[in-house]
Design a protein around this nucleic acid. Structure first.
Lengths: 336, 336
DNA sequence: ATTGTAATCGCAAACGTTTGCGATATAGTT
DNA sequence: AACTATATCGCAAACGTTTGCGATTACAAT
């Protein structure tokens, strides 16, 4: 471990000269600076980040908290996309990512211990206790996907667009002639569930179509649950002619159930997916889906958080990243 | 930010008394200790980790480096399982996880800057340059999956069992009567590719079956490539009657290609997967697969790394976690 | 020769901990 | 009463940086 002192001794200068030289600050003779920089490289010097953090009051780390709701929530490609997105921006701004899986870690504690300069909370529950802690503290934080609009607490958040694109998908199915449209949604208190559920209900009301509550079923976001619930749907006396699946896990689960029953997609049932998967066109058949740009969500979240850390403020309180419906071959007119 | 000094002032004691009390060390009067602990809680005190790191010469963070080989290598559930496994053990031992995606971060730099106490490198390339850096330094490190046996460099590593289970799967297919057995493998310089490829060749030689090189095709581990290569295989004049897929991404890609061609599994082609997915039984049909216990790999890797950090040594140089073949319904006798 | 200006440089404090060591106090033993 | 053993406690150094401030120097302008 070579320190700044050793370099100082090596060139017969003071610590401060070395520090200034290495940090590109003025006040050090050009040729001394050159000698310092060379020696530092020769001695394989790296600044001790803890020492820096102590005096700079900043560690250069942002925490990423992913609460473990089910056993394997982290399995969801949603999370890897978020992480990729965060990583890109954070690294470019010289921040590291500290990952906290599971529920044991309080982000408040991470911040108070100065392990991190700020935190992005990937919380899918609207009433997430971790998220609620934020109210009485003012800690740099950004929530993904954030709280519902009109919620009493105000937290900067980034989210993919849920409502317009979902209505677009529904409308597309209605236009094809579908009326028995199922929606395998997520857990009750998730923002996605709330927003899309409302979109479903308002659109049906706008079109004066009665809502069959049997067609809206709550999953735990998992493939297993997609499989199970699709089974329930197909067991109904009047099974749906189309189904929209909440995310990248529910869709393959549901599709596998459909094939298990020996049904054909889209001839006997139309399927629409939602998610960030790059592989929808590889599905059998290629899957009509709402493409959410989760990586872009991660990008934006990192950007907003870093802005908070460095300026103390935050211009954008609630950012929404576009989603779009891409029609492929898993949807067609309902069977007659 | 409440510091130890403020607490000391609050109870009219010295910093050292507070420190000792809070760290459960002896040498402080029980009732003073009680007062200190109470006040610390009241004042919402948390130790400043950088200050601790400076004096303890340890930051309590382990780095996880996941080199970005393709654009989205991180998509692979392999990585989330590793992370879950690492997280479990690390958190239990009061370590945090620092995640470095992409190739820009040198783990050597992470260590030299004292951002981390040690590093686990998730490298799938045997000649990974990051992994090679380790040779001349002695830094606490563990590689997943590690280098080939007999490699000149010796790095502690953890891996899932590749050879025995793969031979078992092959033998199972041979016993069913298959001779045209394809293997969609990974990239050339990956340990998995190497070990399983060798297993394939030796077993075929042992059984005096000529090896058709067309049946062994290298993927980039992605679903897209699984899809593409399965297409190539089915285009052969003598297409295989069975195929083994490298990982959790290649298998669904290949299966989707098979369905795209209108073929039936397993009647027309048998499929075996390999991976850590919990969802093999949800596949259509339920997928015969080698189940690798990647989360357990992560557990072990964390344990070994922490042992290195804390004791300086490492008893287990190369750990292998069992894999097992689970026969489900995607395999049967070859079509006549 | 004097003053002014600017650049270079080092001292020392500060960041918030932990910890060895010596000082003091208390209790116990003879 | 004298001594020992033990427990409690604070001082101050140490960890490796950064940085404000004052000191020094050089050089030009007066």
């Amino acid at each position: 471990m070579t320190t700044i002192k050793e370099i100082a001794a090596g060139v017969n200068a003071s610590y401060s000269a070395v520090s200034r030289a290495l940090n590109g600050k003025k006040g050090v003779n050009p040729e001394l600076r050159k000698k310092i920089i060379e020696l530092a490289k020769d001695m394989n010097y790296f600044p001790h980040s803890s020492a820096q953090a102590l005096v700079q009051k900043k560690v250069g780390v942002i925490g990423v908290i992913i609460p473990r709701t089910g056993e394997f929530a982290f399995q969801n490609p949603y999370y890897s996309h978020i992480l990729m997105g965060l990583s890109q921006i954070a690294n470019a701004a010289d921040y590291q990512l500290m990952l906290s899986l599971g529920d044991q870690q309080s982000y408040t504690e991470m911040y108070h211990r100065r392990l991190v300069d700020g935190v992005v909370i990937v919380a899918n529950r609207l009433d997430d206790p971790l998220l609620m802690e934020v109210i009485h503290q003012h800690i740099p934080v950004v929530a993904v996907p954030g709280l519902a609009v009109g919620s009493e607490v105000e937290v900067p958040s980034v989210n993919s667009e849920n409502i317009v694109s979902f209505k677009q998908a529904l409308k597309y199915l209605l236009d094809l002639g579908h009326r028995r449209i199922a929606f395998i949604t997520g857990k009750e208190n998730s923002l996605y569930t709330t927003e899309r559920g409302e979109a479903y209900r308002t659109l049906f009301k706008e079109h004066n179509i009665p809502i069959n509550e049997d067609y809206i079923c709550e999953s735990d976001f998992s493939k297993t649950d997609g499989f199970r619930l699709m089974g329930d749907l197909l067991d109904l006396a009047q099974p749906p002619t189309a189904v929209i699946c909440m995310n990248d896990l529910v869709a393959p689960g549901a599709i596998q159930q459909i094939y298990r029953r020996g049904l054909k997609i889209p001839e006997q049932i139309s399927v629409i997916g939602i998610g960030c998967s790059e592989n929808f066109e590889l599905y059998h058949p290629p899957l009509t889906a709402i493409r959410t740009q989760v990586q872009a969500v991660g990008n934006k979240a990192a950007q907003i958080l870093i802005e908070q850390i460095e300026t103390g403020g935050c211009r954008e309180k609630r950012v929404i990243i576009d989603s779009e419906l891409i029609v492929r071959q898993s949807t067609t007119v309902p069977p007659s």
